[in-house]
Write a protein that binds this DNA or RNA. Structure first.
Length: 894
RNA sequence: GGGUGAUUAGCUCAGUUGGUCUAGAGCGUCUGGUUUACACCCAGAAGGUCACAGGUUCGACUCCUGUAUCACCCACCA
């Protein structure tokens, strides 16, 4: 069998993926006796395309999954998509507008628009499915879910009803972030602040001067607020009233004193607009002040604005300023004022706070039974992380998480858009009051009308780890409570809680925190044991890749055909630490493409050796392989070590470290030395065994090449590599360690000779005579002379222990035709001895001084007991180190 | 304003309980190479006061304090 000279990912990736998928290895079995290992794939938004953020998520999770699958776990990796309420609706509306529809909401109506969005989503999900496959993700497609599937929707309703019953969901008039463009509320987290330079006006308001950047909201202002301790305004008392000339004539205003006012800012006095500002709203609530709406939900001024009514706020501003100026009330304008404007994270308009009736989740009400206490949702979120039921990697995000919870306000869950889960509440005119029905199903009676609002998209995705595992066959069985439903769902029983939640740190609050909140509340169990957070992928210059600037974007779909999915995966995993942003650029990917190719060629070489020896590479394992050479022994030892280290690394989610270890093992040890030395005297059974192990170890990282190569090394009883058991680490004990050390000496000698040749400008390829003078390693080097001769191009090699000509007996000398100088490579042991001696001396000094201290009665009497204890412990520790150093010194041949 | 992190070779980054780190890798640069797989390769070289200043220690890139620069997150000012 002969393989092409270079690995061509294009020619095999799709074929291999198809083979895996059709074989059924991706499919999890809820009836299996094996220990489960579950990851719920963070569902990409059902809009548009996958980007590098998704690619890194898929790569990391696939490594976890493949490792655990090979390690004998029953793995479930459940894929799916999120309906992404606002994001999707706004994408589709924009699309329709581009196609010429002026106002799609009004023109189509609810039902038709939702149908249009559903159509778009279906298409988009198809794209996403194929992109996930391109990355090699070995997820269980038979269990693919969508947040708006019937069963997932039912879970949403179940949880809503349960929370309502517990008094955790309430409806109230509160100030919310209103997006006039999308005509919906937006969550606190979904707002980002953009700095803008705007004029900052100061006006005369009765006896006070007040400043504002938004004069157009000031029509209804009839309170002035100042700090109670501000001496400038000491003569005014809380509750005092006065008359002020204002935009549309005189108003009666009231003085309010409150500590939120910063006396140092502006004039230290402000008027308030409670309907359109969070802080003012809180203040108004505290002092029970009147609130008036100034701006309509369409962003235009209401009748209270008098002559300005109907104007859009943007247009009204200069006109209002003009009028105030004409009245002589404008004191000054500061043109360089930096103001932070709230904008929607979803990329639509400027946020205008408004008071609206909305649904909220109360995060402070202590009604949730947890460990024989009643806790609030906030407290539950804190408890599960504090008690390490949920571990966050990297740890520092725990702090950020707690900080976020401390500042968490009630969560507004209703949205005024149409795409999403409709609030499961129905109303009808009743006798005197409104009839309200909150239920999983619509009410029986006549005349009920469902709440027009939909739920925040994170409400449904917060249930993702388990709503996806509820048995869809039971969706119509409404006799079952949520608890019973889950009890009767085999997947839920087998695979929940999940083991790892792997996602970007940017959605720690949006999603991870809310999953912990909702899942722990709804199921009484955590959603996952470990949270593994990855960082953002940035450009080479450290900039964010943004859709608005396509030149900064790297599209996985451009990279994969060029470099292969394996190379892309490696470049996003190796050399990255969790939670840290990283930069990606083509050269980096090319570097890992080269590695993949190196692996390919190493296999090719091994296969060639098999061919030359007339051995079938697929039936070597049945033969006994014998350990022949020093290199063989060293290989076995190193193979054992790398297996142990990689297994441990993967177990502890240290993917980068383990990957890096494999990279250098394969390239620097296996290819550069073992394969080179095996030329001419290949131990084929061992070579094939090593190759098989390497493919197994690398498979989680680069599944495609390894599976492709596996075909050449697969024995009769082997299936696909993806399903092959993870290699056990062979232990070869002391003998192996010695072999490894001796092998290192051989490498050092060869390297040293090569370096000498280079220093002496010996022509490449020209053979020289070499003399090595050594006391300790004569036998070793003599047994390896063929290798030294070949790899260092030595015509003759003399090894002697005559140290006569040499001052330092420990250093070796090389004598070529014209070369006679000292060789540095061999003195490692000497150096080691020297450094160990130095360390030993230092430690001995410490032990001596410390013991003297401990013998001193005065010290013992005066020092606190724990200090003495610590000192003793430290002495013990150092003495242990000393004894280790002793043994190491003894092991150095002298 | 509060918080978190980063600062190691020209560039991108590793360095997990302080002691084989006399600080490594990849890319780039330079020199030389058709050696029984691989030029997506091989052999070598140059290049670092581990941001700065103190402290703890027998010993600090690693721990502590402070400073500087950068990045991000949270809150938000009328």
């Amino acid at each position: 069998m002969s393989l092409p000279k270079a690995y061509d990912p294009k020619s095999c990736e799709d074929r291999i993926y198809k083979m895996w998928e059709e074989s059924g290895v991706f499919r999890a079995d809820a009836a299996s006796a094996k220990e489960p290992f579950t990851i719920s794939m963070p569902p990409p938004n059902a809009t548009g395309q996958l980007h590098l953020g998704h690619a890194v998520m898929l790569a990391l999770e696939d490594v976890f999954i493949r490792f655990q699958r090979m390690s004998g776990k029953e793995v479930l990796w459940l894929p799916g998509t999120d309906h992404a309420a606002i994001a999707t609706e706004s994408v589709v509306i924009k699309k329709l507008q581009k196609e010429g529809m002026r106002d799609p909401r009004a023109q189509l109506g609810r039902e038709k628009l939702v149908a249009k969005i559903a159509e778009f989503v279906e298409q988009s999900r198809g794209t996403i499915r194929s992109q996930i496959r391109k990355m090699g993700a070995s997820c269980d497609w038979s269990r693919e879910r969508f947040t708006m599937d019937p069963m997932l929707s039912r879970c949403v309703n179940e949880v809503f009803v349960k929370m309502y019953g517990d008094g955790l969901i309430y409806r109230g008039h509160r100030i919310v972030n209103w997006d006039p463009k999308m005509q919906t509320t937006v969550a606190d987290d979904e707002i980002e602040y953009v700095e803008e330079k705007v004029p900052f006006y100061t006006f005369q308001y009765g006896p006070f001067q007040i400043s504002t950047s938004r004069p157009e909201t000031k029509f209804g202002d009839k309170y002035v607020v100042m700090h109670p301790d501000d001496p400038r305004y000491a003569k005014y008392k809380d509750g005092d009233t006065f008359t002020a000339e204002w935009i549309n004539g005189p108003v009666t205003a009231t003085v309010i004193k409150d500590k939120v006012i910063d006396p140092a800012f502006g004039t230290g006095v402000m008027t308030i607009t409670p309907w359109h500002d969070h802080v003012d709203f809180d203040l108004a609530e505290r002092h029970k002040l009147q609130k008036e709406q100034i701006i309509g939900f369409d962003g235009k001024l209401l009748p209270i604005a008098g002559e300005f009514a109907g104007l859009h706020i943007e247009d009204a501003r200069p006109k209002v300023v003009e009028k105030l100026k004409a009245k002589g009330l404008l004191v000054k304008i500061d043109e360089a004022y930096i103001h932070r404007v709230a904008k929607s994270y979803r990329g639509s308009g400027v946020i205008e706070p408004q008071i609206k009736e909305q649904w909220f989740i109360d995060v402070n009400k202590a009604v949730v039974p947890w460990k024989r206490r009643k806790l609030s949702l906030k407290e539950i979120m804190q408890d599960v992380v504090h008690t390490k039921l949920v571990t966050i990697i990297p740890e520092r995000f725990g702090k950020i998480y707690f900080h976020w919870i401390d500042n968490l306000r009630d969560w507004c869950i209703s949205r005024q858009i149409w795409w999403g889960h409709r609030v499961p509440v129905w109303y009808r005119e009743g006798k005197g009051a409104m009839d309200m029905h909150v239920g999983v199903q619509p009410p029986q009676g006549e005349g009920f009308e469902q709440d027009p609002d939909t739920l925040d998209t994170w409400f449904s995705s917060a249930l993702w780890t388990w709503s996806t595992l509820a048995d869809p066959a039971l969706v119509e069985d409404f006799s079952l409570s949520l608890e019973e439903l889950l009890k009767q769902s085999p997947d839920y029983q087998k695979f929940h809680p999940t083991q790892v939640m792997e996602t970007g740190y940017d959605i720690l609050f949006f999603w991870v925190a809310r999953m912990i909140l909702m899942t722990t509340y709804a199921t009484g169990d955590i959603p996952f044991e470990t949270v593994y957070l990855h960082g953002l992928i940035r450009t080479r210059d450290g900039k964010k890749m943004s859709k608005s600037d396509p030149s900064t974007m790297i599209d996985p779909l451009d990279i994969i055909p060029k470099y292969g999915a394996d190379a892309l995966r490696l470049s996003m995993i190796v050399g990255q630490s969790p939670g840290a942003d990283s930069r990606l650029f083509e050269e980096k990917i090319a570097g890992y493409r080269n590695f993949v190719n190196k692996l390919w060629n190493a296999s090719r070489f091994v296969l060639m050796q098999c061919g030359q020896a007339g051995i079938d590479s697929r039936s070597v394992g049945t033969q006994e392989w014998k350990v022949e050479s020093l290199a063989d022994r060293a290989l076995i030892y190193e193979l054992g070590r790398v297996t142990t280290e990689v297994s441990q690394g993967l177990q502890h989610y240290r993917l980068s470290e383990a990957g890096d270890r494999l990279y250098s093992f394969v390239w620097d040890f296996f290819c550069d030395w073992y394969l080179e030395l095996s030329k001419g005297e290949a131990n084929i059974p061992l070579l094939v065994t090593a190759m098989r192990k390497i493919l197994q170890l690398l498979h989680p990282y680069c599944p495609f090449v390894t599976e492709e190569l596996w075909d050449s090394f697969r024995e009769k009883d082997d299936g696909m590599l993806i399903a092959h058991p993870w290699p056990q680490s062979l232990s070869s004990g002391k003998a192996g360690e010695t072999a490894s050390k001796e092998f290192q000496i051989l490498i050092d000698v060869i390297t040293a000779i090569r370096k000498l040749r280079s220093d002496q400008n010996v022509e490449q390829g020209k053979e020289v005579d070499v003399t090595i003078v050594t006391k300790e390693f004569g036998d070793l080097l003599a047994s390896q002379q063929a290798h030294i001769k070949r790899l260092a191009r030595a015509a003759t090699l003399e090894i002697t222990d005559r140290a006569g000509k040499v001052e330092n007996a420990a250093s070796a000398f090389l004598t070529g035709l014209e070369i006679h100088m000292s060789l540095e490579g061999l003195v490692d042991f000497e150096k080691e001895r020297a450094s160990l001696m130095k360390e030993k001396l230092q430690l001995q000094q410490f032990v001596a001084s410390s013991k003297a201290k401990l013998a001193n009665e005065e010290f013992i009497a005066r020092a606190p007991a724990n200090v003495v204890g610590l000192e003793r412990e430290k002495v013990k520790e150092i003495e242990e180190k000393l004894s280790k150093i002793e043994t190491r010194l003894k092991n150095i041949p002298s």
